[in-house]
Computed example of a mutant assay.
Amino acid sequence: MPADERTPARGPKPQVSIRDVAERAGVALGTVSNVLNRPEKVAEATRERVQRAIEDLGFVRNDAARQLRAGKSRTIGLIVLDVGNPFFTDVARGAGDRAAEADLSVLLGSSDQSTDRESGFIDLFEQQRVQGVLISPVGDVDERLTRLRDRGMPTVLVDRLSQGRHFSSVSVDDVGGGYLAVRHLIEQGCRRIAFVGGPLNILQVADRLQGATKAAAETRGVQLEVLSQPDLTVRAGRDAGQEIVERAPADRPTGVFAANDLIAVGVLQAFSLLGPLTVPDDIALVGYDDIDFASSTVVPLTSVRQPSELIGKTAVELLLAETEALAEGRPLDRQQVVFQPELVVRESSRRTP
């Protein structure tokens, strides 16, 4: 084909501006702005003419720029320890549902228990000027979060009690939950009990171990050992389960308390595939979180239940309250909401004492 007959290359289609809409509708720029932001101030006929121009031109409003000018975002940042954990998926669902009721959106980030990733998400949300941040911290982030709050960006801790009440928080009594789990194993006749979970620098894990230790200390003859793991995953549970399987029968625990349900599922897999060890006759097993999958495992899993979706919803409620207080210049009322856990007993721990 001759060069002059070729179809010329086309670049990206120019973005339609609010000025283009005003010219198409034959109105002032301010009129288009009112249609977009305060439609009740515009006569119906004019409003319809502007809407037709918007549709004809394919105009899309730039909310990001508008929010930047207004200094107020319609998004909330949420940082969780592991988005692959169904517990945090449910927390995010609860937060998203409550945020939607307030015409807000949730931006989700998973730290994967990494302080570097956690810091990166905090930086990102600060740059995006989100309305506020919900976070389940890996480590000590008080200084970073204080800086956010000083810049008008409130923060609520999720699944973590605020030490010193520096921030509002929504959490569960994990010490009490760990106590419930091990007290139950003791009542089922277990005297050699293993706590499987980690890393122990995660406060929730440390609190569950503290409760387990307290329960074990109350009964004479009970031994509690700690099988620390690098993370809270199914694979970590399988590794711990394999270690138990490879022991001599006399050295094996008669009960296992897993720091979360994913660990418990991994332990159960190892017992079934490598043992075979029978749950609960050989070893009774208790998990934590009561994720949906807990009741559907090969042996339905006893677990300590947390109100996961309610945790997410409540965190957004606290954030909205702080946002309103900041806007009105009122002092922040830092609330600490602590839910009580519940032991849900299933076949994995039902034994004859």
Rank of each mutant, 00 (worst) to 15 (best):
R69F: 13
A70K: 13
G71L: 12
G71K: 12
K72E: 09
K72F: 01
K72R: 15
S73A: 11
S73P: 06
S73D: 11
R74M: 06
T75Q: 09
I76F: 13
I76W: 06
I76M: 02
G77V: 07
G77D: 11
L78G: 01
V80H: 03
V80R: 05
V80F: 08
L81R: 02
L81T: 10
L81P: 00
V83M: 14
N85I: 00
N85E: 03
P86V: 15
F87T: 07
F87R: 03
F88W: 10
D90L: 10
D90A: 13
D90H: 11
V91P: 07
R93H: 14
R93C: 08
R93G: 05
G94L: 10
A95M: 10
A95Y: 09
A95W: 09
G96I: 05
G96C: 10
G96W: 06
G96V: 06
R98H: 12
R98S: 08
A99P: 09
A99R: 12
A99M: 10
A100H: 14
E101C: 09
A102S: 12
V106A: 14
L108M: 15
L108Q: 02
G109F: 04
S110R: 10
S110H: 05
S111N: 06
D112Y: 11
D112P: 06
S114L: 03
S114R: 04
S114N: 09
T115L: 14
D116F: 13
S119G: 14
S119P: 07
S119E: 07
G120Q: 12
G120N: 14
F121A: 05
F121R: 02
I122E: 00
D123N: 13
L124S: 14
F125M: 11
F125P: 00
E126C: 11
E126M: 09
Q127H: 15
Q128C: 06
R129I: 02
V130Q: 02
V130P: 01
Q131F: 04
G132D: 02
V133G: 01
L134H: 04
L134K: 03
I135A: 05
S136I: 08
S136F: 07
P137T: 14
P137Q: 08
V138L: 03
V138W: 09
V138N: 06
G139Y: 11
D140C: 08
D140Y: 04
E143Y: 05
E143P: 00
R144G: 04
L145C: 07
T146P: 01
R149A: 06
D150Q: 15
R151A: 15
R151M: 13
G152Y: 10
M153K: 01
M153T: 09
P154Y: 01
V156K: 05
V156Q: 03
V156L: 06
V156A: 02
L157I: 03
V158T: 09
D159R: 00
D159W: 03
D159F: 01
R160P: 08
L161S: 13
Q163Y: 13
Q163G: 12
R165H: 14
R165A: 15
